[in-house]
């Protein structure tokens, strides 16, 4: 237990020494936090669905949970059940084999069912395009509120896209 506590204590110092972007990031984090509260009046719950991505977008969504971005600290939570989700975050060109599961997840969500298409593939099929195996983007299957370009979009861009979707629905 002592080494763990020591490590936690020492890591606290390391966090203080974070990269130069930290201050800017803190400002934006606070801004996003305030906007979520103002727009939704509560925390934001997200269901992420990989509809056939290469997994790079998933790596960057998972990065949002690391101590630098700390989205849970901002009131954003990734959930397992679409029934708890305010927002559906879709990655991949929507593989035909994922078309029905993606629809089912969307149907299971309560209104207002915000949808963010994440990454170049979810935007328009990306490098995979539209083919016998892919639908060619999330908007071919669901009503998409916001599209975040990038391959993959870095964590900050993902957050900004999420916020844009929240802002769209509740001006």
């Amino acid at each position: 237990m002592i080494p763990i506590l020591l490590k936690i204590l020492r890591t606290g110092v390391v966090t203080e020494k974070a990269p130069a972007a930290r201050e800017e990031w803190r400002t934006r984090a606070a801004e996003i936090d305030a906007q979520i509260l103002r727009l939704l009046g509560r925390a934001l719950v997200i269901r992420e669905v990989d509809a056939g991505s290469c997994n790079a977008c998933e790596l960057e969504v998972n990065a949002l949970a690391n101590p630098y971005y700390n989205i849970e600290g901002m009131g954003i939570k990734l959930t397992a059940s679409p029934r708890h989700a305010d927002l559906l975050l879709v990655t991949g060109p929507v593989a035909k084999n994922m078309e029905e599961p993606l629809r089912a997840a969307y149907e299971a969500m309560p209104a207002p069912k915000l949808v963010v298409a994440l990454g170049d593939c979810a935007k328009d099929g990306g490098i995979f395009g539209a083919s016998y195996a892919t639908c060619g983007g999330a908007s071919k299957v669901l009503p998409v509120d916001v599209t975040v370009p990038g391959c993959p979009p870095p964590p900050l861009a993902i957050l900004e896209g999420i916020l844009a979707a929240v802002a769209l629905r509740k001006p």
Binding site: D50, P93, A95, N97, P101, F128
Partner: peptide
């Protein structure tokens, strides 16, 4: 599996 099939070999 196969859910993420994107037709890469053909592409």
């Amino acid at each position: 599996f196969g859910f993420a099939h994107k037709g890469i070999d053909r592409r």
